[in-house]
């Protein structure tokens, strides 16, 4: 059994260096700095409490990001209920947009601000898959562990997230030209 000193040292080595990843995910999910900070702090305290259940050889980043993700989703869920938002059931909407893709040249010059706004405009299910893949660099298997859905769902959410993001950015570019 690990003693407290040893636990603390292991936690420092494995989990503290991942704070940027944790914050990045929370910031994208919560969409504001204040909430993201609260979520990261809560997640780290939780992670420390659960650290006894962390086994050597487990993927540390996926383990920590799962805690961050669940903490954020709980907070977002509670807020949703309070605000009586209608949940958007994106998963059932399987019809692909049949119209041809706008040309890639339309989005090539998009600014960082435009990209940031477009990501933030995505539904949270799509946004988390996209952020975990593109901005945290996780594999499909790791994403499936973090958000608790099968790999096939990860794949389809990513495809739809990218499709939507692409459309948002190309439309925006058209507006900018008008």
């Amino acid at each position: 059994m690990m003693n407290d000193e040893h636990t603390r040292a292991r936690f420092e080595t494995l989990m503290v260096p991942l704070m940027n990843d944790a914050y990045n995910l929370a910031r994208w999910l919560m969409r504001n700095q204040e909430d993201a900070e609260d979520m990261v702090q809560e997640s780290y305290l939780k992670a420390f409490r659960f650290f006894a259940s962390f086994h050597e050889g487990t993927n540390c980043r996926a383990w920590l990001l799962q805690i961050v993700r669940n903490t954020c989703c709980t907070a977002l869920g509670a807020r949703k209920v309070r605000q009586k938002e209608v949940p958007i059931d994106q998963e059932n909407d399987q019809v692909e947009d049949p119209s041809p893709l706008p040309p890639a040249s339309l989005i090539k010059k998009a600014t960082v601000e435009a990209v940031r706004e477009a990501i933030e405009a995505l539904p949270v299910d799509f946004r988390e898959a996209l952020v975990l893949r593109e901005l945290e660099g996780l594999s499909y298997k790791e994403i499936s562990e973090v958000i608790g859905v099968p790999m096939g769902t990860v794949m389809s959410r990513l495809a739809r997230a990218r499709h939507q993001l692409y459309l948002i950015l190309s439309e925006r570019k058209e507006h900018d030209h008008l």
């Binding site: 914050y23 994208w28 700095q33 960082v112 990209v115 901005l135």
Partner: peptide, 16 residues
């Protein structure tokens, strides 16, 4: 084209 935009390091948030 999307990947090129998302590769921008300025999209990453750093922990304060």
């Amino acid at each position: 084209a999307l990947r090129a935009l998302l590769n921008n390091p300025r999209l990453q948030f750093e922990v304060p």
